[in-house]
């Protein structure tokens, strides 16, 4: 199995131009995600502009989530730097911390969703202007789905560090995970700011 993943990752072309093709794939996935969130946020802009749009207080949990996001971005960057220097122990440590922070992020978000719902602003609320809350839930769920995908990337990386498949000369996997994880984090910041401002 590991052998196979190894093979999949290996550029089989004798040479390539521009960016490493697999790394490029991740950038393309990011573009696709941007389009998805672009669609959702522009839907929010359009819908909030006409008609009722209920105001609600964003639970504090989401602010905590934002801090967690920033921290985990830092962690994964540290992991990457360490991998480059072949500091495998620290790489492991920081990737592990990123994973934990990622899970914590889902957790705080979950508690935030609960609090919001209990305050009457549930996903499905059928209030006049309740669209604001529905969209808030929808957009953050969608982001959480991206976090889960990112966690998958991180987990694979984590396992592969244990197998000594990630090191200074083989940075592809951790590079991909780092890129994607940063993206998910930036996405959160954007989304959160956007949601607060358009709430």
């Amino acid at each position: 199995m590991n052998q196979k993943i190894e093979n999949l990752m290996k550029p089989r072309q004798e040479s390539y131009r521009g960016v490493q093709p697999v790394k490029f794939l991740v950038w393309l996935i990011i573009i696709a995600s941007i389009m998805l969130f672009g669609a959702v946020t522009s839907a929010i802009v359009v819908r909030s502009a006409d008609g009722a749009w209920a105001k609600f207080a964003v639970p504090n949990q989401f602010y905590i989530s934002t801090v967690i996001v920033l921290l985990s971005s830092l962690m994964i960057q540290l992991a990457y730097v360490n991998a480059k220097k072949d500091n495998l122990f620290y790489t492991k440590l920081f990737v592990g911390l990123s994973i934990i922070l990622g899970v914590a992020f889902i957790g705080t978000n979950y508690s935030g969703w609960m609090e919001l719902s209990n305050a009457g602003f549930a996903l499905s609320n059928d209030m006049v202007g309740g669209q604001s809350a529905s969209f808030f839930h929808f957009a953050t769920y969608l982001h959480a789905a991206h976090v889960l995908l990112g966690l998958l990337f991180l987990l694979v990386t984590f396992i592969r560090i244990y197998q000594y498949k990630v090191h200074g000369k083989n940075l592809l996997m951790i590079n991909i995970s780092t890129t994607y994880w940063h993206f998910v984090d930036i996405l959160w910041i954007y989304l959160f700011l956007f949601l607060i401002l358009s709430r």
Binding site: L28, I31, A32, M35, L36, A39, V40, A43
Partner: peptide, 9 residues
């Protein structure tokens, strides 16, 4: 790449 995500949304 640019349009299918919107349909997904």
């Amino acid at each position: 790449l640019l349009s299918f995500p919107v349909l997904l949304g």
